[in-house]
Design a protein around this nucleic acid. Structure first.
Lengths: 318, 318
DNA sequence: CTGAAAGCGCTAACAC
DNA sequence: GTGTTAGCGCTTTCAG
């Protein structure tokens, strides 16, 4: 019917009078179009998937505060453009298929995967996709913070405070360009003597690491620690302070993300802030322009970072 | 075709031999059924919506750590039963329609709404639904922690430590039976002299409240504070300690939820723990049994609570 | 136990 | 401008 044209905003193919008449009827009848039927006929679902890694235990979806913040922003941005979000934990390429093809998703955003994992997921070729915080995935869009700049900022902040015995910790053993660029930026500013220590991005791993590092700090061999995530930094501080060390008097600790928890912990975390809301918005935009065809080639965007100095960093001890 | 029967596990209507043949073909061809077509023909989508309130700003979906944890558990439980989750922020009844009817959702779970808000959302009658942490919504299933028991536990813990000048804070001005039951339980254990102070469930509101309460603490008029959420308790502690008070030496602070952040803050939060993973699982179960028709009547379930004593509570000052 | 036929609600060509 | 015609990919009666 002509109705379809009205519903789809195909003005110009219908007289204003008729359009008005149809719209009134729609309102009166409380008509809501059926998405399944629309999908089937139009090969467009207005559905996008947010794919996250399923950890070993099941509640671990959204374990990272950073991912949570981005997720909220993605949903909002999508909603404002009349799209819906399907939240799905995936671990295998098969599960990706199960979601993407089964629901004919218009596109997907991937978050929380390492470069290797993204590759293993084998995204269907041609599917509009944006990967957050990784750089693999083939011809897809990417969003991440300006990690080199973030590392640089971190290094400058710490060396500016007089620190010379520095350490950076994070998931350095994974295939993550994000991490390697932060390390690289940090080294550019802080010199090659920077130690690199592998740690998972969890609070508990931070505590363990802090405990392990305590002797070196006490011996004066280490005065500043840069963690690639706030949650890790928070754990490190705990491990350190539990062993009688003072932050920042004995040792400075710098985080990354400026998650909410940065303000919750004591001392309040100095951190490299990235605008996660913006990150989510950009991810949605990049995906939408791929879906609508506005963009032919997937773009990539770097989110600006800034130093937020709070209480966990201070001058190097004398 | 016969194929449909195989795919739908309609054994008994097809010979084992044929079934095997079909399954091999499916595997070989990499066939994935089309959800839209299935929905259209079978009036069953295997899609459930998780509806959350859209705050004023857009990133605030999932602002509460508690909600995040439950969300992860719901997604996992649904996934294990071959259902998918649609994450959607809603503020008006119209938006609910837009999601529920448009996508023919098999069911919805509502979380983060007050009783009034749930009512205003006007869930379509007959739609399988479970509301988390509220009690309104008509004939739908409910999941919440055993709030009376939680309040009681809190009161007993604090009075057991010798506290007699107590205060409870939380969103007491909203239409939330959850909050009123916690208050009631607390009063049962701690007596009627308990002060009640309204506060939103945010860190910043906690800080403000802590600041406001500092004089009373210093004067010895208040020695223990029970907050209806960890994040609020964390803020209160900050407000207090920023004004030179010591927790728990000068004043005890008790939280609710046992969110991750309870371990991050200093001092570590004593709190009423509820198993959010279980909560999400139960929510999914309750919904699924309504969807499948296993259950005719919506049930409600209370999640057990337990006291987790850490460092933020201690004996009443002398 | 297996196949044929109709239709779920909508869009998109194409005539009128 | 407006109505008509086929399907989109599947499930489901209902005959073979």
């Amino acid at each position: 019917m002509t109705v379809s044209n009205v519903v789809n905003g195909n003005r110009g193919r219908v007289s204003p009078a008729t359009a008005a008449r149809v719209e009134r009827a729609i309102a009166d009848l409380g008509y809501v179009p059926n998405a399944a039927a629309q999908s089937l006929a139009a090969r467009r679902t207005r559905l996008v998937g947010l794919l996250l890694p399923t950890g070993s235990d099941d509640a671990s979806l959204l374990a990272s505060p950073h991912d949570v913040a981005v997720t909220g922003a993605v949903e909002a941005a999508l909603r404002h453009r009349d799209h819906h979000l399907m939240l799905r934990g995936v671990g295998t390429a098969r599960q990706v298929q199960d979601s993407v093809r089964r629901w004919s998703l218009d596109g997907v955003v991937l978050m929380g995967f390492t470069d290797d994992e993204v590759g293993a997921l084998a995204l269907p070729a041609g599917l509009p996709a944006v990967v957050v915080d990784a750089t693999a995935g083939g011809p897809v869009a990417h969003v991440r913070s300006d990690d080199r700049a973030g590392g640089l900022l971190a290094g400058e902040h710490l060396t500016g405070l007089g620190h010379t015995r520095l350490l950076i910790c994070g998931p350095t053993e994974t295939t993550s360009r994000v991490v390697s660029e932060r390390v690289e930026g940090f080294r550019t500013a802080a010199g090659d003597r920077v130690q690199v220590v592998a740690a998972q991005t969890t609070y508990d791993d931070g505590v363990v690491l802090g405990t392990r590092l305590a002797p070196a700090v006490r011996a004066g061999d280490l005065t500043a620690i840069f963690a690639t995530a706030d949650i890790l930094a928070a754990g490190v501080i705990r491990g350190l302070t539990d062993h009688g060390l003072r932050v920042p008097e004995d040792v400075s600790v710098l985080g990354y993300d400026d998650a909410d928890l940065a303000r919750y912990v004591t001392p309040r975390l100095s951190t490299i802030a990235q605008d996660t809301t913006r990150k989510g918005q950009v991810a949605a935009e990049l995906l939408l322009e791929l879906i609508t065809g506005e963009a032919t080639e997937p773009r990539s965007e770097l989110i600006d970072v800034a130093l937020t100095a709070r209480e966990s960093t201070g001058p190097a001890p004398a």
